[in-house]
Amino acid sequence: MERRASWFNVTSVTLGLAFLYLPIVLVVIFSFNASRLVTVWGGFSTKWYASLLENDALLDAAWVTLRVALISATVATVLGTLAAIALVRYGSFRGRTLFSGMIYAPLVMPDVITGLSLLLLFVAVGIDRGFWTIVLAHVTLAMCYVTVVVQSRLITFDRSVEEAALDLGCPPFKTFFVVTLPLIAPAVVAGWMLAFTLSLDDLVIASFTTGPGATTLPMKIYSQVRLGVTPEINAICTILIGLVTVGVIGASIFTKRREVERQRAERLAAANP
């Protein structure tokens, strides 16, 4: 039976996607609104973007957020990839059940609990709260997401290439960096991006774990949203949406190209034995 699109299927997918995209599109459109009243159209204008550039507190917050996200995503990717290898390759080591529990639990744990418990940890061990405590908190949350992403790639991974390298005398560490890592790279990149956006996005955990002097962009946006909807917020949101869209599309082109290259290399290898 050929799977074909019935009117019901087309309608439900179209309506579903419209529901997902309409609010985001409206935020973008109204960021170009000349009127201060956010929901009444007063003509096209980019003045809210100009006023953003003069808002030092906001730019500071954006810079803090960006650094937190870069550092925490990178550390989380290293730790998460190690954890994925441990889960897929190390069979049943001692304490495995607890380990996989600690990987899956943070994925569904309400943010308020994670945030509160990390804050109390930082207070108990006496670390000064601020930039670095947010980084530590984000690494902990994001590494679990990285693990899940990398793990699903490792499960479907063809071990024979790796075994060939090892059999030919390639040392284990070199095998990992020369053979395994390039093959799981798309998943590692996807994991890094997920970790990066999670960090960029987080309000609750950052609010709990921050200290004086470190305000992230979501915290800033949140405190402004509570005072009311303003075109400036729409403008920040539009910039963030733009960055993420460019990033995601860029990454998918990157993985697509790698895939094509890999297939070409395989065809070449098959043609010239």
């Binding site: 997918v13 579903g16 996607l17 997902l20 995209y21 609010p23 985001i24 409206l26 935020v27 109204f30 956010v38 929901t39 009444v40 991006m193 956006t197 960029l200 996005d201 309000l203 979501p218 946006i221 949140y222 949203v225 909807v229 917020i233 949101c237 963030l240 949406i241 993420v244 869209t245 990033g247 995601v248 998918s252």
Partner: peptide, 28 residues
């Protein structure tokens, strides 16, 4: 289609909730 469902998930949760304030409020 999968890509289209995942894409909004990459944009900030806070922004997506914020968007609904402008839609749902009395003069929204």
């Amino acid at each position: 289609l999968v890509m289209l469902v995942i894409l909004p998930f990459w944009t900030s949760f806070l922004i997506r909730v914020y968007a609904w304030i402008g839609i749902l409020k009395k003069e929204g």
